[in-house]
Amino acid sequence: MADFDRTPAAPHIPAPLPLRHGPVAGLGLAALAAAPAVAALAAALGGPSPAPVGVALAGHLAGAALAVAGMRRGYPHPDLGAANLVTLARLALTAALLAPLVAPASGWAVLAVALVALTLDGADGWLARRQGRVSAFGARFDMEVDAALGLILALNAWAAGTVGAAVLLLGLPRYVFVAAGAVWPWLLAPLPDRFGRKAACVVQIAALIALQAPVVQGPVAVAILAGGAAVLGWSFGRDVLWLWRTRS
């Protein structure tokens, strides 16, 4: 006879990985090892005063702490993998770009650092697939670093007075999307993997990098902003439409 009085079993929630667990500890130690490089790059960008170096280090360590917390929630591989180290390097470069928001820096220097971060963006996914280290954590880590890089570059372009506050149209969409998900939870459902979304992210970052160049002003800057915003609007709009049609 079926036992109708039995309450349903609670869903199994994996226990967080311990901080001493190999990959988790490795990510934390790698982040600490990268801190001096972040400080040196921040000093090169914004000067050796405490403010630019401090804000860059704070950004790096906060981002690394979030990454470690995310890895503890679930990571299926026995070692850290090169892909996560590349993403961590991109986080370090992104954090260093906080320095020019505190102390003025050359737009060309900001552009150069951001260009390195963009170039590395294609390496982490390739390494993860090549080494068999693909994971939901790695994909999320990569996505959040992309979003942070976009926002920080937008803030740098705004601080430089290139196109005004309108440049935030290129830096805030990811965070607006997440905030909207708190109101409409169906927006937070998993999305199918699409090349167009990845291409739109590259266009977003490339447009923001171009806006760092001191020679990009006036109508050229407005055209770059408008083009990047149009591509992002198409990408996010397509995803929102798909999520709305498939909502439960």
Rank of each mutant, 00 (worst) to 15 (best):
A103D: 13
P214Q: 07
R129V: 11
V216M: 13
I205C: 02
L98D: 00
A83N: 03
P16N: 03
G196Q: 11
S235L: 01
G59I: 02
A223C: 10
W158K: 00
L88G: 02
F137K: 07
L111R: 12
M1F: 06
R6K: 04
A179Y: 04
G138N: 03
R20W: 11
Q212I: 06
R197E: 04
V55W: 03
L41K: 02
V145N: 05
D3F: 01
T162V: 14
Q217T: 14
A95N: 05
D142T: 03
P190K: 08
D146I: 11
L120T: 07
L243F: 08
F141V: 01
W158E: 00
A67P: 04
V163C: 14
M143K: 07
A58I: 10
A229P: 10
V203M: 03
A199F: 15
V240Y: 04
A39H: 00
A182H: 12
L153Q: 05
V167Y: 01
L17Y: 01
A42C: 13
A83R: 01
G233M: 07
A35D: 02
L127Q: 03
Q212E: 15
G47F: 04
A15Y: 05
D193Q: 13
R72V: 08
R6T: 05
D3V: 03
G237K: 09
A62L: 15
V220C: 04
A10C: 06
K198P: 04
L19S: 07
A99C: 11
I13E: 13
A226Y: 00
R73Q: 13
W242N: 00
L19Q: 07
V145I: 15
R90E: 00
A15R: 15
L19Y: 10
P100Q: 07
T7K: 13
A69S: 10
A157N: 11
R197G: 11
Q217K: 12
T119R: 10
Q217C: 06
L168K: 08
R197N: 12
P192M: 08
W108D: 14
M143D: 03
V240I: 15
P16H: 04
A154R: 01
L208Y: 06
W158L: 05
G26F: 00
A206F: 05
A25D: 06
L225S: 01
L115R: 05
V24M: 06
V113D: 02
L32V: 15
A67N: 00
A112F: 09
G164V: 10
A39W: 00
G227V: 02
V38T: 00
P11S: 12
G164C: 14
P23E: 06
F137A: 11
V202F: 02
L232H: 00
W242S: 01
R140C: 13
L188Q: 11
L29F: 13
G161H: 09
G150S: 14
T246L: 07
G138M: 05
G161V: 10
A189S: 13
V86R: 00
G28Y: 02
G227I: 01
L91H: 02
T7H: 15
W242H: 07
L111E: 13
R238V: 14
S135Q: 11
A2S: 13
A207F: 03
V38F: 00
V240D: 00
F177C: 04
A62H: 09
G59N: 04
A200F: 02
F137S: 06
A96I: 10
A67H: 01
